[in-house]
Design a protein around this nucleic acid. Structure first.
Lengths: 104, 104
DNA sequence: TTATATTTGTCAAATATTGACAAGTCATAA
DNA sequence: TTATGACTTGTCAATATTTGACAAATATAA
């Protein structure tokens, strides 16, 4: 599930039009359309606003929004999965940061 | 292990000076210094060239280089780990893309 | 047809990134 | 002390990327 898909789901379940949400975000309808289709990326504050407007879980939307950006960043690289693992390890940093970059 | 740290390790093990590698990359020494300290990001082609110059594994360096970028992107977000997991799922896409965004 | 909703393409403005330069610190040698 | 070499820091202009607006297209329904 990508961010835009989820926004569309939520928007349609509330029977709102793109132009209505676009107006609330103070962008035009074409821009909103692009965000929904994943063609353009929403700004962080727009994500928070959408969570409010759509009465959706803020963390869920932030997660999808951030995941899209991560995916975009790594999708063309052979080492994508390894890079995600190493990045994840940076959070669980202990003395034992093994950084085994030689996995599949 | 971050990209710059690894570059520094490799550079020192070969007893090369920053200015020597900088010249090979056609950037100045301050720029190289910043890359090594993680203050600036190397370009992809520079990573490949460094792998050659330092006789290092290309995939290892690309992994660290990409992981730094991923980490930079998510490090300030509470949902960082979830986002990495969702992004990872996008690679293993099957019909069952469950996208459980409601984890810790 | 007409009206409404959404999408597509293009452009300029805003923003972010890159690299060069000058000047700084730090360590060592003379 | 001064001088030298390696590296670092701060700032700026050039470049690249992203954002948003606009016009026009397509789609869907009445």
């Amino acid at each position: 599930m990508h961010f835009g898909e989820r926004i569309k789901e939520l928007r349609e379940s509330k029977e709102l039009l793109q132009r209505q949400l676009a107006a609330s975000l103070e962008i035009d309808t074409p821009m909103f359309s692009k965000i929904e289709r994943g063609d353009r990326r929403a700004k962080r504050e727009q994500v928070l606003l959408l969570a409010k407007l759509l009465e959706a879980n803020e963390d869920e939307l932030l997660t999808l929004w951030l995941a899209d950006q991560v995916y975009d960043l790594v999708k063309d690289e052979d080492v994508a999965s390894n890079a995600l693992r190493v990045a994840e390890e940076h959070f669980h940093y202990g003395k034992s940061e093994s950084t085994n970059t030689s996995r599949v």
